[in-house]
Nucleic acid binder design. Structure first.
Length: 727
RNA sequence: GCGCGGUUAGCUCAGUUGGUAGAGCAACCCGUUUACACCGGGAAGGUCGCAGGUUCGAGUCCUGCACCGCGCACCA
């Protein structure tokens, strides 16, 4: 027995060495497994694409969970004999990274505005690449057995090429269009967003009732009201029957007399307020639609920085935040305020990143028509060609897809994949141009300029499964697509999962994955969401250093049912450090008591009746664990394994073996020695997906007949035959 | 407003097709010169959110309600 068993298990001394052993073996790569005869060349494949990790970030607890769940699955499938591919990737994370970099610029007293685009892009690229080696070494720390030889980055040339072809196809199929539409604009970050990047926040703010000629109108945003020259009411509202559609009235407004036009439109809710409203089509989606219906003028009041334009008269150039109280004061002096409700509760839409109130703006940008794409996805989800774990995500997905709106994919940031398009300098017509050849507008023959926007990151990551596998021609695409599983956070079901389904179906005519496993949030020990501002962020790397990666993996997987958030406490991880050590000491006991047991010809050993019962029960247990694994109930398998090892193997079998080992009868001794060693081996194999380091370390020190790596041992239950393996 | 979850032991959660309520952690008692610095044994702890219904039988299925959480939505 190795002397190292005389001391407690030491993960720090072990883990890097073991990871290197695995990585050097090449077995993370399914092709190597076939070449070396580990996996049958005709074996069924199992493929899983890792959600691309932000290249510039560092690993957080959520990543720790992703790596743990996915590695458990992948190690299990590999041991089951599948040609198993787990493809890792890094994400340039467009907007996320640009925000991080902008903060860095701010600290240095610089700003992105006015910077040369190419210089800024280069700086962010260098910054990202510098950090990417960090995240990759952290992924290795988690024990992830992914195929690094196939690693992909979202800005790789071949990925970008695929993304461009998709954009072109959408354009040719009339599913992408450039349109002057109202978009959600963040005046701090200077970009538009899709609906998903916007948060609804309930706030209590003053609500102003203003005298607008003979009417009382109400608003929470007086600073937008300068350009309001249409006053709208419901056509059936008897209170205002005397006014006719199109009628002009003169009235005194914020900056002097104006002429307003009466508009009758059914969009007005007669029950709300006075049933009369004025509209600001440039900065409000409802107003925009009313203006479109009646062909009304639209005027911009607030610029892209959140400052008032010349239409605001004396307030021009002021930021809306500063201007509001001054505008209120002026309205008061002019006796235009009817009343103020100080406790008005309403919902404001904010930037998910900085909390700035979203300022809708009219912009000419690219949109994808989502309805046709969603319909195909709906069919596949409804007839369960794609299955969700847990199941209720099916309903959630269907609900979202049925109510989908067009997707704005233009982002006004430099850090991303440039949109390959030209815009006419005269008529603003947009043309997709992936070969960079167009010089004249195809509509009016005037000069064109290059679109300087970039794609929404999710547009490219929505193509990740087929893009990484080399659609359409690469062998990997033929072998591994559709992938078997997509495992990711439930939080990004719409951002990412639904879009992958839609774009995957659209491009490849096939689903991108057969199953979706969605895990919940990782919360702190008190059940609160982790956030930097609360200071309750749990760094998985610190925990793995302190207690060992295996302990971290057990701590984060036990009790973690799919879709449900999990509270992660240090105590829990500590408890599983004890478990790793328990396993270590079991090994110490078994090895020190079985040194006389031969490694070969063990089939000649006669198994005593009592020990045979152990074998029978073990086989039932193996079947049970296998069933949990196949049903993606890792939380359950982990807990059962823990229980078996500690309370059956250690507390019962080992305790009872102590007398037998002292027996004068050689057969009794041999039988129990063989039993102990056999149980240990099977436990190590089944535990390997969960606690790969300590099990591999133990395996390597054991005297076994075919001493390969534990990571490529055969799983002890043969699925095809439906019974345990005998070897 | 629409939709999706949750409510089970002090805490965190399991509970697969209905068949006498489970685990881990914590707390309590006892033991321990040993495979185990990270040990063992024992006992305790729950009208399974509330009210009905189906059933021989409901934590589980159905209806309604309450509370908590989340998502979606253009109420000026």
């Amino acid at each position: 027995m190795d002397d190292k068993f005389l001391k407690p298990y030491n993960p720090r001394e072990t883990e890097d060495r073991i990871y290197k052993l695995w990585e050097d073996s090449g077995f993370f790569n399914p092709d190597v497994c076939v070449e070396k005869g580990i996996t049958d060349k005709n074996a069924e494949t199992f493929s899983l694409i890792m959600p691309p990790t932000n290249a510039n970030g560092s690993l957080h607890a959520g990543h720790g969970l992703v790596m743990t769940i996915e590695d458990i699955i992948v190690r299990y499938k590999r041991m089951q004999g599948f040609r198993t591919l787990w493809l890792p990737g890094l994400d340039h994370a467009g907007f996320e990274t640009q925000v991080v970099y902008e903060r860095k610029l701010e600290k240095e007293g610089r700003t992105r505005f006015g910077m040369d685009r190419n210089v800024l892009y280069k700086e962010i690229l260098d910054f990202t690449l510098q950090n990417s080696s960090n995240i990759k070494s952290q992924i290795r720390k988690t024990g992830a057995s992914c195929d690094w030889s196939r690693e992909k980055f979202t800005l790789d040339d071949d990925i970008v090429k695929t993304v461009y072809q998709t954009f072109k196809k959408l354009y040719d199929d009339d599913l992408v269009y450039r349109g002057n539409k109202i978009v959600s604009w963040c005046s701090k970050h200077h970009t538009s967003f899709s609906n998903l990047e916007i948060l609804d926040e309930e706030r209590i703010e003053p609500y102003y009732y203003l005298k607008y000629g003979p009417f009382i109108i109400s608003t929470s945003r007086p600073e937008t009201k300068f350009g309001d020259k249409y006053v709208v009411m419901h056509p059936d509202d008897k209170r205002y029957a005397e006014y006719t559609h199109g009628q002009k009235i003169n009235l005194e407004w914020i900056n002097g007399p104006i002429t307003a036009t009466i508009i009758k439109d059914k969009a007005v809710d007669m029950e709300f307020g006075t049933g009369v409203m004025t509209i600001t089509p440039w900065h409000d989606p409802v107003d925009f639609e009313i203006a479109e219906r009646h062909n009304l003028e639209k005027e911009q009041i607030i610029d892209e920085f959140g400052k008032l334009l010349p239409v605001a008269g004396e307030f021009a150039g002021m930021h809306i935040k500063k201007a509001r109280p001054l505008i209120i004061e002026k309205l008061r002096q002019k006796w235009l305020i009817e009343k103020i409700d100080e406790n008005y509760k309403h919902v404001v839409r904010t930037c998910y990143k900085c909390g700035t109130i979203i300022e809708p703006q009219i912009k000419n940008q690219w949109f994808i028509k989502m309805k046709p794409l969603a319909e195909r996805a709906l069919k596949k989800i409804e007839n369960e060609e794609i299955k969700y774990i847990p199941e209720h995500y099916k309903k959630i997905s269907i609900h979202w897809l049925e109510n989908i709106t067009d997707w704005n994919i233009s982002r006004q940031i430099v850090w991303g994949i440039p949109i390959p398009a030209k815009i006419c300098t005269v008529c603003e017509h947009g043309m997709v141009d992936i070969e960079n050849k167009i010089t004249k507008c195809t509509k009016c023959s005037n000069n064109v300029k290059t679109d300087i926007d970039t794609f929404d990151t999710w547009f490219s990551s929505g193509q990740w499964p087929f893009a990484t596998l080399g659609y359409p021609s690469k062998d990997d695409f033929k072998n591994f697509y559709p992938t078997d599983l997509m495992e990711t956070a439930g939080e990004i079901i719409f951002f990412w999962v639904s879009r992958m389904i839609m774009l995957g179906l659209y491009i490849t005519d096939n689903i991108p994955f057969k199953k979706v496993y969605l895990h919940g949030l990782v919360l702190d020990a008190k059940g609160r969401k982790m956030s930097k501002s609360k200071g309750n962020v749990i760094d998985p790397i610190i925990l793995t250093d302190k207690y060992g990666t295996d302990a971290f993996r057990m701590g984060i997987i036990v009790g973690n049912t799919p879709g449900t958030s999990l509270s992660l406490s240090e105590d829990k991880i500590k408890a599983y450090k004890h478990f790793a050590n328990k396993l270590w000491n079991i090994t110490r006991f078994v090895l020190s008591n079985t040194e006389s047991l031969p490694a070969e010809n063990t089939q000649e050993i006669k198994i005593m009746e009592n020990d045979q019962k152990t074998f029978d029960e073990l086989n039932i247990f193996i079947k049970d664990i296998t069933s949990d694994m196949d049903n993606y109930k890792f939380y359950m398998a982990a807990e059962k394994l823990y229980h078996y090892v500690w309370h059956i193997f250690a507390d019962k079998l080992i305790e009872e073996s102590k007398d037998k080992l002292k027996s004068e009868n050689k057969e009794t001794v041999l039988s129990i020695q063989y039993t102990l060693k056999h149980v240990l081996e099977k436990c190590l194999i089944m535990l390997h997906p969960f606690v790969p380091f300590v099990t591999e370390e133990i395996w390597q020190t054991m005297n076994l007949k075919n001493k390969k790596l534990l990571m490529i041992q055969k799983w002890p239950f043969d699925l095809a035959q439906g019974k345990p393996n005998d070897n």
